[in-house]
Design a protein around this nucleic acid. Sequence first.
DNA 1: GCCGTTTTCGGCCCGACTGTTTTCAGTCG
Length: 590
Amino acid sequence: MENKEIARILYETADLMEIAGEDGFRIRSYRNGASAVEGYPERVDAILKDPSRRVTDIPGIGKGLAFALGEVVARGSCERRDELLQKYPASVLDFLKIQGLGPKSIAMLLEHYRICTIDELERLCLEQKLRALPRMGAKLEEKVLRSIAQYRKSAGRFLLSFADRTAQELAAYLAEGGGVESVTPAGSLRRGKETVGDLDLLVTGLGAAVALERFVTHPKAADILGRGENKASVRFGHEGLQVDVRALPAESHGAALQYFTGSKEHNVALRNRAVRMGFKLSEYGLFRISDESKVAGETEEGVYEALGLRWIPPELRENQGEIEAAAEGALPRLVELSDIRGDVHMHTTETDGRASLEEMAHAARAQGYEYVAITDHSKVMAMMNGLDETRVIAFARRVREINSGLTPLGDGEDLGIRVFSGLECDILKDGTLDIAWDALAELDWVIGSVHSHMNMEAAEMTDRLLRALECPHLRILGHPTGRLLLHRDPFPFDFERVAAEAVKRGVWFEINASPERLDLNSTLARTAKAMGGKFVISTDAHHPKHLANMRYGVAMARRAWLGPEDILNTRTADGFAAAIRRQIPIEGCS
DNA sequence: GCCGTTTTCGGCCCGACTGTTTTCAGTCG
């Protein structure tokens, strides 16, 4: 059993314990343990099997959780979880995803109404029965109904990162069967869309039929939706992502890849173009209508070329001008992962990160970066131990010493990477920043982010952001729309007005590469670019492994037609340092 | 439930807001 799966079961147990009203510290220990297992570099099931090893050596795992881990690995559950599932059906865990309902309210609902599904919860709200319970009223009913709508909207969709991991796992598995030349993900995953509905994998090679057979017998193939000679469909894993695997002859691989990559709109436009040119385009190839002879199909490049087009990067295939640009040879040179030279938004154990500055810097160096900016939270994030002015100033000083080599770090060697002192400073409700300007002035790099009061009216939120932009130390708007994919919509504001002001003041936009955010999205980023905006792509990493999420941010930037010249952290360390130096005179600095 | 250790149990877990009340429990980040 993989660590992630073990962790999921522990998290679920913690959620159930919370509904059951158990001790908060114990629940916290379960979550800590889950998180420790999830991030542990070795497989926990292997450690459990090895008599010379102890799982209690993993920080956060003590005697109690060690026993639970043994049970989970052996039989997929543990005693405490079993007990709780006697009391509450697993479906109530979905209630925790509804905004406005916490464990206490859910426990009360279960006690009074014995509901187990979201549908039943919705009915209670519509029948105005929530308000019969203490401390619940009409506003809560409305909020819950809104949140149920959001929940339904996101059902059946999956994060890009999740689809990507599944695709990689399956590609490796299918290749093991032998005789497989290539396994290529198509569809919205290949286009780098932030969420995907299902996963399309194209398999070529003599062993493709064997691969299909291996696919439907995969241990995580939960439900076989169909299987034929050339295609099989499966609902995969407990998450239920639908995966289609198609076996293709090599001669039509390019046409099939093109066809199954989409988007639908792009393909419709492309087929129309083909017809105008006397061709017919399908997943089997490009054919001349007059004599049905095949013109192209082996490669995607060949298909596009025969249609008088440059090859179009999948991220652009949305029928938003890419076909015209390809015809004119005017496709942009898109930013690539290898263009990125530094990651400039990350957290450490000073606040809610899981690793120290040194560990994050080493991990960033391992990514091949020239520089990092460490950007912990500011003080309003009290639960995360956010930095106040004193700590901000001390941190800035420490980074200056690190960079000048005055402070040899723990292991004696220097970091081998340039560090910028940064802060992810909260933009408070009134638009002021959480940290005094003179303390911000000590830092190299200030990100302004909204983390609270996201339900303001659009006009109010616009004012709030405009006010934040007045701070001369602010260099960048972090995750500018606040969305959490499949979970929370962007907060409303007048983007163009804020973007115009940001451009005027030389404040940039973050493309936050965290798979849950991917914020700005490609549409807004493209708008901002048209207005003269500049960007950074950064991961908001809370753990060294999150640094690898950069590619999702790059995908978003590519979907927005951005090139390396639009992205500030494609510059060298010196170039970046020069770019972030303040250019606007300080007026009325507090 | 974990951790650290004063080796046997106490500390861990903040602060603001919301909606419902009429003084605060519950949610959220």
